[in-house]
Write a protein that binds this DNA or RNA. Structure first.
Length: 1011
RNA sequence: GCCUCGGUGGCGGAAUUGGUAGACGCGCUGGAUUCAAAAUCCAGUUCUUUCGGGAGUGUGGGUUCGAUUCCCACCCGAGGUACCA
């Protein structure tokens, strides 16, 4: 019988579903093991072969752990809130819930086809009210908490109120807003309720604040830093601008140190840990207070080099710094205001263009040096960021290149405080290799000593203290979108109130349209039934808002990372209605043992979820403060895409400055004049392409195309324009390319603006210039490979094994469908191994008695088997799945050559391979006479006795180069080996009469003759 | 710039503490089987060679009897991050 994979796979998938083979129990005598995948966002495009890579790996591991006797939790679900469904809703009016449901069904069908051992009874969907009820619940817990730095944990906000009543804010050491005032107990009591609320908001772990946010006008929403790449939105590539808005924020900064410390106790990949710790960005230094001369104002600065304080010859404030208007002298006022305006105008594009213009303005004010009492001029400059530290720096030009450049540019003195260091050309930033001088009491000290000393002195005179600063910012938690979790929040007199927990979930309302309202409110502003009736504790029509007990509900929704910050815990007890999850469940499963997912979430989901977990830990809801013990980042599977160059004739404003230094990659701007065509700007990597453009042939082609457009320059509204060509790199479907690189223009002219006279394609020798590149699979690049087609042609087991066989799990690898025939024919061979009877019938021999025989033919097959057991088990433990596939190939090739038919070999082999190719393994297992699924059969035990050898093929090397081999008994000692080797005629031929200087013999390993 | 990872045949990749470089698979070449094709099977496949051998893991050094592996310097590629004081 031949290997009928379609039949077999369908049969076992149905069997597993029907028997709930992979259902995990919350109480079990077995040891637990929790294997988690990052749950997918169900996009409309369905899965491509890159998606399941991590799922296959985790499935192999989960199945292996079941064979090893563990109670394995291997759940799956959907991160089903998100922008694409909403965008689709905007375009079509289709409710996102409907498209999401459809997409989930497609995903489920595709996932099922791959034979994963998921426990689907635990499925969660972030957009399901039964799930987001608990997302909202956690939000309320955050709102009701503050961070006590003294106890280093989150505590109930009610406790804080009690303290305020008793002692005021004195003695409270909280992670709170910068501008939080201090007050006494009597003052607290006198505050109005609203005033109290406003103050408490500065302490809560989630709070409302006017934050400068990344506003994306095209998407109509705020984006997190990790949703922006190169100044444009990650989705869609729309421009992003800074804008102030009232937003919910998460006080993740309170956890900065713990997030950093926690990295040390988790087994996560180093690059990922590095990305997180850079993102958190801890720097140790000091805060120094500078007093403004003739004024009450004091400006604290943060510095990592307090040792250089005597080198500070000026101060620089961010242009947005709050004190700038206060301290600027009348004489400088105009200049400063003009500069501030210019900075605000400075577009994102300029900032990205890498133009390092040194700009700034003098405020006319002077600060007093805390030690020397010398006057220090105060400047403003946009190289100082408002959002980091205190938004002000003490500028030490001799020790910091930016300060140095600024000082040079504005002719500010550059005092040298480094002994024997030349600073005539550049600043000296090396803190280790110098001695401080010209610095009063710091003279003669090293960086380390001086830092310690200066902090001590600052503290003594009350002008500063040692301080640790973090780059990490609080996370904005509001999104102006429809398809997300509604906040369980309503507003009374502008102050936020939480909906009582017993009335959760607050279900997302229906809206007429999914766009922002005409007044600029988020889409929820379109809902007509979106007000909270505090009397009836229910959502009511907005019209009732005149009633004194009915209040407006929050119009923002939560970001994508809200739902993904707790799904791993919810899986432990996914149907719990009374509580987020039961204590028993979370105490049993505790934490994820193995988490597999992409590194792209390094500073997003993987950081936020750690924060969320730590909060849950502080609240006593979870037993551990790191939720994933071990994490593996699977590499991307890349597709091969083809692209051509599309040339569009158009106009560009002649403003070359904007292009200087700008990387010209996908879209290049090209200019043309009467005799020249070239790139605007300069990009060395593009020289090759530039030459093509500049070649006479192409030049003539372009000129002919545009010959009727005689004017190369024209002027409009005072702006000079130049006739230009926009060259776009455009992806084309690989399947449209004929022959080598031939392409029919009509087949790719899907461009709605296509007009052959204004848009044309670069070609070369009559052929279109087609280039190929290996890159991330994406529908828009026409390079996706659908797993359904692969399953149809080769089967899921082949696909699973091939994906593993491609290369190391963590590495990016190009996909090449042609290669799958290798593993597919391997599976056919495996099948044949069990079907050696007449007419290829299933055939095993029961001669397994005396399995311990070490010699003869049987000994050989046992050796083959046990070598395989050893290697495969080691590979699984090292997540080196690619090498175990080749081990299986070697094993099956060996057993076929050995004509093995013995049950004692074939039965363990089926178990060994079942994590990788579960369908064929189940089928063989059943043919071997078993009635139960193979999934919990004990993993074969490796026995070293089968591998014992008594002879060894010794490599004989000369000066480290292997020249030939010699088979010798392993019990031969050094001297005997040397004598035997030296006596060999090949040795003598190699030596050609020379006498060897030395002979190295490593018994059991190698012989090296040094001559 | 900084941080991280990587660089091995035509391709994907293997080599566990330094010990036979190129396992396994794709592709390619030749052969068997077949009326023929598909499928399958067998042999070969780093380069070079005067067929003895010689060279070879990005480059140049070093340590060692011996280096893809360890050390130093550099080059190239990928990803992340960037006026962070």
């Amino acid at each position: 019988m031949s290997y009928r994979f379609r039949e077999i796979e369908k049969k076992w998938q149905q069997y597993w579903a029907k028997n709930q083979t992979f259902k995990a129990e919350n109480n079990s005598g077995k040891e637990k093991y929790y294997v988690l995948d990052m749950f997918p966002y169900p996009s409309g495009a369905g899965l491509h072969v890159g998606h399941p890579l991590g799922y296959i790996a985790s499935d192999i591991y989960a199945r292996y752990k079941r064979h090893k006797g563990f109670n394995v939790l291997h759940p799956q679900g959907y991160d089903s809130f998100g922008l694409p469904a909403e965008q689709y809703a905007i375009q079509t009016g289709q409710h996102p819930a409907i498209t999401t449901e459809e997409n989930i069904n497609t995903y489920r069908r595709q996932l099922d086809r791959l034979g994963f051992s998921f426990d689907w009874s635990r499925e969660v969907r972030t957009s399901d009210p039964r799930y987001y009820k608990w997302t909202q619940w956690v939000f309320i817990q955050l709102f009701n908490s503050w961070y006590n730095i003294n106890s280093d944990k989150a505590e109930p906000i009610d406790d804080l109120v009690v303290r305020f009543k008793k002692e005021g804010s004195a003695g409270v050491n909280a992670a709170c807003d910068e501008d939080t005032p201090t007050f006494s107990a009597p003052e607290w009591k006198q505050f109005s309720d609203k005033e109290k609320e406003r103050l408490l908001l500065k302490y809560r772990l989630t709070y409302l604040a006017d934050t400068e946010v990344n506003w994306c006008p095209a998407l109509g929403t705020v984006l997190a830093n990790d949703e922006i790449a190169n100044g444009v939105s990650e989705r869609g590539g729309h421009p992003v601008v800074r804008k102030k808005m009232t937003q919910w924020s998460m006080r993740i900064t309170a956890y900065a140190q713990r997030l950093l410390d926690g990295l040390e106790k988790i087994d996560w990949p180093q690059p990922l840990k590095d990305a997180q710790s850079n993102w958190i960005g801890r720097s140790v230094g000091a805060e120094v207070e500078f007093r403004i001369q003739n004024s009450e104002f004091r400006i604290p600065v943060f510095t990592t080099r307090p040792d250089t304080i005597f080198g500070a010859s000026f101060m620089t404030l961010a242009p947005e710094h709050g004190l700038v208007p206060e301290i600027t002298t009348p004489v400088q006022k105009a200049e400063v205001e003009e500069y501030i305006e210019a900075t605000a105008r400075r577009s994102e594009r300029d900032r990205l263009s890498g133009v390092d213009l040194i700009t700034g303005a003098f405020t006319g004010a002077y600060a007093e040096h805390p030690f020397s009492k010398e006057p220090i001029p105060i400047w403003i400059g946009d190289y100082v960021l408002a959002g980091y530290g205190t938004g002000a720096v003490m500028s030490v030009p001799c020790g910091d290149q930016r300060d140095y450049d600024f000082a040079k540019h504005f002719n500010i003195p550059i005092p040298n405080i480094f002994k024997g260091v030349d600073i005539s050309e550049e600043a000296f930033a090396d803190k280790e290799n110098t001695i401080i001088t010209n610095s009063d009491f710091l003279n003669g000290l090293s960086y380390k000593e001086a830092t310690k000393e200066v902090i001590a002195q600052l503290e003594k005179i009350g002008r500063g203290k040692g301080k640790i600063n973090f780059r990490l910012r609080d996370a904005v938690f509001s999104r102006q979108r429809y398809w997300g979790e509604p906040f369980p929040v309503y507003y009374v007199d502008g102050m936020p109130k939480m909906i009582p927990e017993e009335h959760l979930p607050l279900v997302l309302p229906e809206v007429e349209k999914y766009l922002p309202t005409e007044t600029g409110d988020p889409p929820l502003g379109n809902a007509t039934t979106w007000a909270w009736d505090t009397g009836q504790s229910t959502v009511v029509s907005n019209k009732l808002m005149d009633h004194r007990k009915v209040f407006p509900l929050e119009l923002n929704t939560m970001p994508g990372w809200a739902g993904s910050s707790q799904y791993f815990n919810r899986y432990m007890d996914p149907h719990s209605e009374e509580q987020i999850f039961s204590r028993e469940a979370v105490n049993y499963w505790r934490q994820v043992d193995l988490y597999i997912g992409g590194i792209e979430h390094a500073t997003g989901h993987l950081l936020y979820s750690r924060f969320w977990q730590k909060f849950m830990f502080d609240k006593g809801l979870v037993p551990v403060d790191e939720y994933a013990k071990k994490l593996i980042n699977q590499g991307m599977i890349l597709g091969t895409s083809a692209y051509i160059y599309e040339v569009i004739v158009g106009t560009i404003a002649v403003d070359y400055s904007a292009f200087i230094g700008k990387p010209l990659k996908d879209n290049s701007d090209i200019f043309i004049s009467s005799d020249r065509i070239g790139l605007i700007g300069y990009e060395p990597n593009y020289l090759g392409f530039m030459e093509t453009i500049q070649s006479k042939k192409i030049f003539d082609l372009i000129k002919n195309k545009i010959s009727d457009l005689a004017e190369y320059y024209f002027n409009e509204n005072g702006i000079e324009y130049q006739l230009g060509l926009k060259v776009l790199r455009r992806h084309v479907d690989v399947s449209l390319i004929k022959g080598e690189n031939e392409l029919d223009i009509k087949s790719i002219s899907s461009n709605p603006n296509f007009r052959e006279d204004i848009i044309f394609y670069l070609n070369d020798n009559g052929r279109f210039k087609v280039e190929r590149e290996v890159e991330k699979m994406s529908k828009s690049k026409f390079n996706v490979v659908n797993p359904d087609a692969i399953c149809e042609e080769y089967g899921a087991d082949s696909l699973r094994m091939y994906e593993m066989f491609l290369g190391p799990l963590e590495q990016a690898k190009p996909w090449n469908t042609a290669g799958i025939t290798g593993v597919h024919s391997f599976l056919k061979k495996l099948w044949r191994l069990y079907h050696s009877g007449p007419n290829a019938q299933f055939y095993v021999t029961e001669d397994s008695n005396g399995a311990g025989a070490d010699h003869g033919e049987r000994g050989e097959v046992f050796k083959t088997l046990h070598k395989t057991i050893k290697k495969v088990e080691e590979d699984i433990q090292n997540f080196s799945f690619n090498t175990s596939v080749s081990t299986f190939m070697i094993c099956v090739n060996g057993l076929l050559a050995q004509k093995c038919t013995s049950r004692a070999i074939l039965e363990p082999l089926a178990i060994l391979i079942s994590p990788y190719a579960p369908h064929i393994a189940e089928e063989l297992w059943a043919l071997l006479g078993h009635r139960e699924s193979i999934s919990t059969a004990p993993f074969p035990k490796f026995e070293a006795k089968y591998l014992v050898e008594d002879r060894k093929e010794y490599p004989i090397s000369f000066n480290g180069k292997m020249r030939f081999t010699m088979e010798l008994p392993l019990d031969m000692d050094k001297e005997e080996i040397e004598a035997t080797v030296m006596a060999h005629e090949k040795t003598q031929r190699q030596l050609q009469g020379r006498i060897p200087k030395k002979v190295i013999v490593v018994p059991g390993k190698i012989v090296n003759i040094v001559g």
